[in-house]
Design a protein around this nucleic acid. Structure first.
Lengths: 230, 230
DNA sequence: CCGTATCCAATAAGATACTG
DNA sequence: CAGTATCTTATTGGATACGG
């Protein structure tokens, strides 16, 4: 910057900080730059490779992704890891503390679901739609359900374990699940949130459970935008 | 494309959008630009004037504040209002939906409180510290308390009503509260979170209640930063 | 392929001065 | 007080080239 630092007390780094003791402000210093939170979101269900992150964050450029990952790593939210041979590829994974950011994403998602401008037809990643299930599940209705639900998006597969009104989702082999959904993240979203018929996605296994499962999710009512001026 | 628009489906405006159906991403389209969430934070306890917002957001420049307020208004989160005569001044207030963003700030604050780099000695606004009380109150311990707590920060005064394990805070006249704290936002923070003695802030009224009140709040343990490399 | 690094154009943010 | 206007600096995104 030509002329040194601003010398304003910066808590996180010498860059742009809010200089505010408020916890929310500090959180934004940590994950508030553009793409920061979404990069972390993509790591919530397990380690990913650079190119997978890039693919699932449409619009991010490689240099920005590199920089965000480096910052998140430096701040202790993300870790670089080398998978053991024979894979020997480098992956990025969220740290324990990084994973603890999930309630932030849930609060954001729950709030934005009421937005009149939310467009559910935009692209959505597998991680996003699966995290949203954890956010939007009707705990009351789900408390009477238990079992394993599998998801196949191409070769990325996940398993959700229903129990206690919640669903815990992680990467895993869906064979052996009570019901398995195969399709795209968008087609799953259309079924659970958009009222699309179950027949619009491939379902294997217990169809009755599939029906009850997709009924566990719904979106809150949209806000009515106030009159433009008073 | 030289100029023109990207023509990529943008849900919020023609500007930089994440183009992602994920709710969290949409939320960031709405309140994720720099200062956006903090401007909204300052409105959570009632309407404020432009210059008050500027004063409590140290570092924001007038043009950015103008632009953020205009965007938040256009998105339905903030409303401009003219106070009735004789005041006749213009204030900004959060809409109902804007107020519903409080859980986002709570999730951010709760998460960031564990940050090893959080610096509680930075400046803090009255709104921030009071919102943090709502976030960090020990509901278990608070469930056995009831009453009114007043706060005086210069001429800005607030009243918190304890009950049901929660505290509901709003602007109001603190006279008549069971106990009234007078000082700065920072000095209140030092007492409730920093273990500073009650004598470091002015307390009127029921001192025993004051002692029990400040004991309701505490910060979660810091994360231990993992070894820098594996 | 998997990432990084570099260059460049477009934007957003910051500082400051200014006006009704 | 409540913003605008203007100018400067910083960050972003896109393209592309480079090293393993």
């Amino acid at each position: 910057m030509e002329l040194e630092n601003k010398t304003r007390g910066c808590s996180v780094d010498a860059k742009r900080s809010y200089d505010d003791a408020c916890g929310a402000a500090h959180a934004l210093d940590l994950i508030g730059e553009r793409w920061g939170l979404l990069v972390l979101r993509e790591l919530m269900l397990g380690p990913r490779r650079f190119s997978d992150l890039k693919k699932d964050l449409p619009g991010i450029s490689a240099n920005v992704l590199t920089q965000r990952l480096a910052e998140l790593e430096e701040r202790g939210l993300v870790r670089k890891r080398l998978l053991p041979p024979p894979a020997s590829v480098q992956v990025y994974e969220a740290t324990e503390w990084g994973l603890e950011a999930e309630p932030i994403m849930q609060a954001l998602g729950r709030w934005a679901a009421r937005s009149p401008r939310h467009d559910p037809t935009l692209p959505i990643s597998a991680t996003s739609i699966l995290l949203s299930l954890r956010t939007m599940i009707d705990q009351q209705a789900a408390s009477s359900m238990a079992g394993k639900v599998g998801f196949r998006f191409g070769k990325d597969t996940y398993v959700g374990v229903l129990g206690g009104g919640n669903i815990v989702i992680s990467r895993g082999d869906p064979s052996g699940a009570d019901v398995v959904f195969t399709g795209t993240p968008a087609s799953l979203g259309a079924v659970v949130y958009g009222g699309a018929p179950l027949s619009s996605i491939e379902v294997e296994g217990d169809h009755d459970m599939a029906r009850r499962f997709v009924a566990l999710f719904s979106l809150p009512p949209k806000v009515e935008l106030a009159p433009p001026r008073n």
